[in-house]
Amino acid sequence: MASGSGVSAETNGTPLLRLRGISKAFGPVQALTDVDVDIRAGEVTALVGDNGAGKSVLVKTIAGIHSADRGEIQWEGRPVRIRSPRGAAALGIETVYQDLALCNNLDIVENMFLGRERTRGFVLDEEQMEEAAQETLSSLAVTTVRSIRQPVASLSGGQRQSVAIAKSVLWNAKLVIMDEPTAALGVAQTRMVLDLVRRLADMGHAALIISHNMNDVFEVADRMAVLYLGRMVAVRPAAEMDRQIAVDLMTTGASSRQSPAARKGEGG
């Protein structure tokens, strides 16, 4: 499913989000050290690394939950400070956490607009909300739900993940961060969510996913960013990586193997 567009996007234009020299310490623990990474619109960037490598801290720094001790964040070429999740949302950064933050007793439309309902006077404008939700879901080709007025409790795991992702799109996210979007999903459900992530990028959003599942990462990512003990040891197009290189980087911080592209170049 992963298109080769990542390679050509290597050099063109300003990245949507540029991190330079981001460092973060919690007391004596250095969680991030001089992290540099660019995240581009229209691409799926996978953030991988072993447990404790600093993936969550990095994502929370972007999402406005932690603030970096040092370093610079540029958003669309301008330096910014992201002080809170609200600030991140104002820029166009939405995060889909693993627990999804959906209310089971509310329906899909109600969940997608939760906290940002449209009203006419005091009264909720259900028609307008339903139309907008329907439009967003169709644009993402989320068509497996029977009715957008069904409670989230009646949805499958993959459908819930889709609703959570659609919610961020509805709110005009330019960058959607997803934490383990396929964890605990079956094969078909995983397929559905990965297709959705791909479509998200094809629509021009930037997608950043954290995943432990190498199959998923190689299937959907245009670019991979590997963290090792708080350092960014590699940011490369996924085409220049293979499973073995990724595992080497994640576990030792370096790999002496040749990239698949290089091997091909040698006519191996």
Binding site: L100, A101, L106, E110, L114, G115, R116
Partner: peptide, 19 residues
Amino acid sequence: GRYIYAIGGSAEAARRAGI
């Protein structure tokens, strides 16, 4: 009313939604 239902469904989700 919507927020009362939301909090009853998941207080954490409601809080994250800015309620």
